[in-house]
Write a protein that binds this DNA or RNA. Structure first.
Length: 427
RNA sequence: GGAGAGCUGGCUGAGUGGUCGAAAGCGGCGGUCUUGAAAACCGUUGAGGGGCAACCCUCCGGGGGUUCGAAUCCCUCGCUCUCCGCCA
């Protein structure tokens, strides 16, 4: 959520910034609601003050044994007037809140202009695409030939966009998780974290998935309370600091967390229908940082580097893209995507997305830290990034390390996690 | 699943429906004292919001209700704890 003061005091400038990401802010509507809000809030609070003093007077009079009937007559009308004012105020505040919650974050000044993916800017490249002297297969063909990856069985069990794996491929999948958790916790200073995979609506509002993106979530409905399957560990992990005032000594907070992720992929019918690229259920190792405002853009570079370190360990060629304003997620002020080289697709594909949300999530979360200089709570900045998406990393390893005979070499960094295994071969 | 107890400020913990945003203690911060520190003593110390301002409003798990007035009474939901049952 944007700062309401900013929307009041710099409405047109803010609207112009939002325009860069293709969001049209109805400034006339906002101004109109805001002036009504102000008027109603002032008058409501005046009525509340009146009620408070008069009620206190009744209390005093009663204590002194005086007749309170005249005083009661005096407040007779007040109750209804106050109730009406309060109801009106709540209504308009809810209306404003609804609008506010649906306004995306303002792009940082360093974010390139642009409408969509095509306008993203390549920042750097690492590694070189391997030249194959045979026709490369994709991970679906490789995994099927090995008899260790099976989409049909998953479709029988559940439906489209799921997978079953077994044997060395299943272990490779697990090895990737282990490598990433170990690297980030032991080399990059993140706290290994375990969290619920089912969350409540408050948590999703906090990180920005609700109210706008409910259709992308799997919902668990019951009589009393609704829950959701997490679309990313970002939700439960970032919500650790919801409603918390963090002492200065405890910043920055750096969390690494492996979870499954569940996405309905509504609206992506027909897109990436083959293989593991776009699944309803996938694993991800997520990095989350909670930092002081002045550090967040420096930290974004660091965090992106931490995600890159995994690709470098796996010796997978990749490039770093600065997302343009129009391609960024709802809550982000700035985002770098890491795209890994996939030889079978002959292109780079997203494998990580690293974002600085500034205080956008923190404001929704009421996540603050106590600034010792002022003694006052201030909003933190939150960041996160995939480090990395496991399914897509598995795809990248299989496709980049494939051999002419259909076998797959195991990257050196993963061999310790594979019991020393150096290759996966056809039976 | 059944029965019961509870949820108050950073923590512990008081709080007959009326001047309670809330006693007291601990902790934190500032000061006096001290060569320095400790102890002692004094003071101070919640969060959010509105208003140009004076100042005002809201918040005692969440939501609703009763009342001139609710931390206090009622309803409801959530959470925590104890016992019983079941269970990985």
């Amino acid at each position: 959520m944007l700062d309401p003061h900013r929307l009041r005091n710099e409405l047109d400038a803010t609207a112009a910034c939002l325009n860069k990401r293709g969001f049209i802010l109805d400034t006339a509507q906002l101004e109109e609601l805001e002036s009504r809000r102000k008027e109603l809030q002032v008058s409501t609070q005046e009525l509340q003050a009146e009620r408070n003093t008069k009620s206190k007077n009744i209390g005093k009079a009663k204590a002194q044994g005086k007749d309170i009937q005249p005083l009661l007559d005096e407040v007779a009308q007040l109750g209804d007037k106050l109730k009406a004012a309060e109801t009106g105020l709540v209504e308009i505040q809810e209306e404003l809140q609804q609008i506010l919650m649906a306004i995306p974050n303002v792009p940082h000044e360093s974010v390139p202009a642009g409408k969509n993916e095509a306008d993203n800017v390549e920042v750097r490249r690492w590694g070189q695409a391997k030249v194959f002297d045979f026709d490369v297969k994709d991970h679906v063909d490789l995994g099927s030939a090995l008899g260790q990856m099976d989409f049909e069985t998953a479709a029988k069990i559940t439906g489209a966009r799921y997978v079953t794996m077994n044997s060395a491929i299943a272990r490779l999948h697990r090895a990737l998780i282990q490598l990433m958790l170990d690297t980030h916790s032991q080399e990059h200073g993140y706290i290994e974290t375990y969290v619920p995979f089912i969350v409540n609506a408050d948590s999703l509002r906090g990180t920005g998935q609700l109210p706008k993106f409910e259709s992308e979530l799997y919902k668990i409905q019951s009589d009393e309370q609704d829950f959701y399957l997490i679309p990313t560990a970002e939700v439960p992990v970032t919500n650790i600091v919801r409603d918390v005032i963090i002492e200065a000594d405890y910043l920055p907070r750096k969390y690494v967390c492996h979870t499954p992720c569940f996405r309905s992929e509504a609206g992506s019918y027909g897109k990436d229908t083959r293989g593991m690229i776009r699944q309803h259920q996938f694993e991800k190792v997520e990095l989350v940082q909670v930092v002081r405002a002045e550090d967040s853009f420096k930290v974004l570079e660091e965090l992106t580097g931490h995600a890159e370190a995994i690709l470098q360990k796996l010796e997978l060629p990749y490039r770093v893209m600065a997302l343009c304003a129009g391609d960024m997620g709802f809550s982000a002020a700035k985002t770098y995507d890491l795209e890994v080289w996939l030889p079978a697709q002959n292109t780079y594909r997203e494998i990580s997305s690293c974002s600085n949300f500034e205080d956008f999530q923190a404001r929704r979360l009421k996540a603050r830290w106590r600034n010792p200089q002022t003694g006052k709570p201030e909003l933190v900045h939150t960041l996160n990034g995939s480090g990395l998406a496991i399914g897509r990393t598995l795809v990248a390893v299989m496709e980049n390390y494939q051999r002419a005979d259909g076998g797959i070499d195991i990257p050196a960094a993963l061999q310790p996690y594979m019991g020393g295994l150096t290759e996966i071969t056809l039976a």
